[in-house]
Every structure is written in C-alpha cells, then in structure tokens.
Design a binder for these strands. Structure first.
Lengths: 216, 216
DNA sequence: AGGTAACCACACCGGTCGGTATACTGCGCA
DNA sequence: TGCGCAGTATACCGACCGGTGTGGTTACCT
C-alpha cells in the first residue's frame, strides 16, 4: 500500500504536487527553507537567499516570480515532507488504531528533534495571517489535513479533533513554552482519551457538581 | 481574596509590574498593541505607530528607548490583562476544581471572541524566537505561568501539563486552523481527562496491544 | 548554424527600516 | 523668574526592502 493512502486517498490531493526545479532553483528553495524556518519569512530578504544559494536575485525572480510565491512553496514542500514522515511512522506502528495514534505523537517528537523553532505553518501564519498572502491557504490546508488525519485514525470526529488539539498544543508548548516533554505529555493524554472513549458513555459523563453540558 | 492569589502568590511576581506612562506614552503603547497584534511585530514600523498614536517617533524613543522594548512591554501588558480575565472567570466558577478547569477553557473562548490572530505570545515567538529579543523571556514566562496555573488548578503535575497542552492547542487551532469550535472541543477533552484522572489507575492503563510506557 | 533555456554579474529603482538631531512650545514648580 | 520635563514638528541618516533591467556566457537540442 502506498504510504499516502493510509488516511484515505481523497485527502492527499488537497495540496497540489511540487513543481520540478532547475539546479539553481533547487538551491534557492533549499536555502530559503532553512532561512525562513530559522528566522521567519519576513526577517529574511531576497538578497540573503540568493547569496546563500550561490546565485542571484534575478534567477530567483525568474524561477519563482515573487518572494511570496517562494514562501508558499517553502511551506508546501515542508508539508509534503512532514506527511511522508508522519505516515511512514504510523504505518510502521502496525494495524491497531490506538498504536497508530500514539505513533503519530512519537512522529512529532523525532521530527522536531533538536529544532527549537516549532511548527513552520503556525510561525508563518503568525507573520502573514489576516492578509491575502499565498501562504495562508497552504497553512489552512495543512491544518485541515492534520485534523482529518486524526479523525480518520480515531474513526470519530469528536475524538479526532481532540487528538489534533493535543498535537498542536505539543508543538507550540515545546517551542514557545520551552517544554521538551510536551510531546510525551501529549502522548499520555492521547492514551487517556483513547481509553476513555472505549468506555460506556455513562461512565464518561461530567463529574459530580459540574454544570450540565451539550448532549453527547 | 485578591484575584491574583487564586493560583498562588508566588507565581504572579514572575512578571515585573507595568510602568506608569505619560499620556503620549499611553497612546503609543495602545496604538502599538493594536498594530502589533493585528499585523505582527516586524510588519509594523515605528513611523506607523507614532502616526497612529497622534505623536512622533521622538516621543516614542524618549519614552521606550527602542522598538524592541516597546514590543516587550506590549506583551507584558497583554499578559497582565489576560491573567486578570482568566482569574476572574475561574473565580466566578465556584470552588469545585473541575468547574474551575472548565471555566479556564470558557475564558479562552470569550477572550479570543471575534479575534482571528490567535495567541499574541505564540505569534511574537514565531517572529523573534531564537534571537536575544527582550520579548523572548516575556513569552517564556507567560507560558510557564499558564502551565503552572493548570498544574495548581488540577493539583497534579501530569494532568496540569496535559490540560495546558489542550489550552495551547485550542488557541492555535482556532486561528491557524480556522476552527471556531476548538475551545469547546478542548473543554470536552479536558472534562474527559478530569474524569479519567478520578478513576483507579488500573482502569486508565494502556489498551491491549500497545507498547509499555513510563511508570505512573 | 540557429534557437533557447538556464544562469550569472551588476546596476538601478522607489520606498521603508530603526534610530537620531535640532529647534520649539507649553506647563508645573521652586 | 527660571529650570526642567513632556510633547510637537521636521529633517535627516545609512541600511535594507522587494523587484526590475541590461548584457553576456554557457550548454544542449534541432
């Protein structure tokens, strides 16, 4: 089975495929990706990118048209790579849904690794959110894909959304919060939610003394 | 009881008190706060801030010394206001710990309200993280305070950290993910975690077939 | 031989960046 | 009376911003 089919073939095409690049174009995108991720997209100028890639601004604009398009492509490629990593890890975890969910949280931990700049999509949205920047729909698509990934994995919309919250919380807490244990903490919480979901509804109601809530 | 004592008097002083400001200084900080939050700190220039405040760059630098210091002060004041909002809501929820936890998630929902730019601290960290910008320790302190807030509220380090993850995940998913239901989803997940924590440990262990994990 | 895509070197554009300098007005206070 | 602080107004600084234009050099394809 192709790795991209793990969560349903109709999800992957949300993002268009990556275009082929010339040698200098590849070097530019590689250099831009490193710089954008490490320092933020606004903090990095096109002059610096061209210099780091060993080429010129002219080539950059010939290949990508604008800095904004380069930013969007940087995120697009990163999304592809992250999904490949995630789906590979989940696939290796075996067929049991619970194991696959926990593997998704392990995937976060070793994807982030020593990096301390967190989620590239959240960071980019922090800089360009609320504008018509072409990166905004890429961010939106990535988050929608991740949510759907967890929903399909959990086989339940409510539980999947909750697992997605833990995933996002782990990444942001690990970096902005400086908490290295966040992915493991999220994994534990995910296990607790999975266990709770296996129980009859009457046992998962609100604790005594709390206010009534929306129907289950 | 003063509102700031709800989670322990030793936590509040983590952030120094806000300095008093002259009228023009207040206008500058107000204008800067709106602009920084809406567009990001790097996207907003000091000329624009001075103009929006109806004053001049000269006054800005006389009062705050640098743009970086103004950014840090913007976050510092926002932290104070958020905590006041949060603690007021939690206090109004009554004495039951579970109710207080759920009230914390309600506080997120009506704090964010119609805003679609998410957590100011996460956004700022996305722009200046990895540098020696004076805003970085302010972000770190805020996230540490929030974690401790949930730990104290839950009376348990492990559970508190997990609730904190849900809190952070809700904010980022609501904005970068565009999911308006995220705070309510986080509230449901929090209730499930609270309920699971009330059960004996033998019932909350890993489901059959999953790998062994760290001791409880 | 001619065409073309890819690339490089370099100069240039208007605009904005954070930050500074100078000169002046109004006001409270000793 | 006079000092000092808060504020206004404006001009200025070097550096960098995203983006364009010109001209020339390869290498491959027909």
């Amino acid at each position: 089975m192709d790795v991209v089919d793990v969560v349903g073939a109709d999800v992957a095409p949300v993002l268009e495929p990556l275009p082929e690049l010339t040698p200098a174009g590849t070097r530019l995108l590689d250099a831009a990706s490193e710089l954008f991720y490490a320092r933020g997209v606004r903090a990095v100028g096109v002059d610096l990118i061209a210099e780091a890639a060993g080429t010129t601004k002219k080539t950059l604009y010939d290949r990508f048209g604008s800095k904004d398009a380069l930013v969007a492509l940087y995120l697009l490629r990163r999304a592809h790579r992250w999904r490949r990593h995630l789906l590979t890890r989940v696939e290796a975890a075996g067929p049991a849904p619970a194991d696959r969910v926990l593997a998704a949280f392990d995937a976060v931990e070793d994807w982030m690794g020593a990096q301390e700049r967190g989620c590239a999509f959240v960071n980019a949205y922090a800089e360009v959110g609320g504008t018509d920047h072409p990166a905004v729909p890429v961010v939106r698509a990535e988050k929608a894909w991740m949510r759907r990934f967890f929903v399909d994995l959990a086989g339940d919309g409510r539980l999947g959304a909750q697992l997605h919250l833990l995933h996002e919380g782990a990444m942001v807490t690990m970096t902005a919060g400086g908490d290295r244990d966040a992915p493991r903490s999220a994994r534990e919480a995910a296990r607790a939610l999975l266990a709770a979901a296996d129980r009859p509804a009457v046992l998962t109601g609100p604790p005594a003394g709390s206010a009534p809530h929306l129907p289950a």
